[in-house]
């Protein structure tokens, strides 16, 4: 038998139907804030990467300002960014972990506020690996805050990323642990 490779690269298949969003070509499928508003909105605005009809609406029902609408139940969420305050409640509520709040207001970095349900939980100030949509570490980032808005185990990690990584970083990994 010919020798088979024993390593599967994480990017062996990168396509929408293997679960990876292409931030270039799939933008029309997701909710992305308008750039001018985004640059100014303190606390950030939500990016919802929920490109498929799902009978699901906790983002809508949990949104305190009524910014997110899912009507009917299987619709793709629509965001009224004028109402979004970047509160991260949807980040912690979304069953698909598809909501990310991104704050672009700091001058020399941005903050990605992402859902986290893994162990261990990083501490504030800890430097973690920031992963892209295929789990590839793309940059290091400092954890600025760890919250748990819904008090149900889903943490929201605020991680500091360099400018330009806002639409790339979608997960973090605590260093040292395997």
């Amino acid at each position: 038998m010919s020798k088979l490779s024993n390593l599967i690269p994480p990017d062996e298949q990168v396509s929408f139907w293997s679960g990876v969003l292409d931030p270039e070509s799939n933008l029309d499928l997701i909710s992305v804030p308008p750039e001018d508003l985004w640059r100014e909105k303190r606390a950030g605005l939500v990016v919802i990467e929920c490109p498929q009809e799902i009978p699901c609406n906790p983002c809508h029902t949990s949104c305190p300002t009524g910014a997110i609408k899912v009507e009917p139940l299987t619709a793709i969420p629509k965001v009224n960014y004028d109402l979004c305050t970047g509160c991260t409640i949807c980040v912690s509520k979304c069953p698909g972990l598809a909501c990310f709040v991104i704050d672009k207001t700091p001058a020399d970095y941005s903050i990605v506020k992402l859902p986290y349900e893994m162990y261990p939980v990083p501490k504030v100030g800890e430097v973690v690996d920031c992963l892209d949509r295929t789990g590839k570490p793309v940059v290091e980032g400092e954890v600025l805050n760890v919250t748990e808005p819904s008090r149900d185990g889903t943490k929201v990690i605020w991680v500091k990323v360099p400018k330009g990584f806002e639409m790339t970083v979608r997960a973090i990994k605590v260093k040292g642990g395997e």
């Binding site: 349900e117 893994m118 162990y119 261990p120 939980v121 185990g153 943490k155």
Partner: peptide
């Protein structure tokens, strides 16, 4: 091995 630490359970 028993699971001791778990983020949810």
């Amino acid at each position: 091995m028993w699971l001791e630490e778990h983020p949810i359970l």
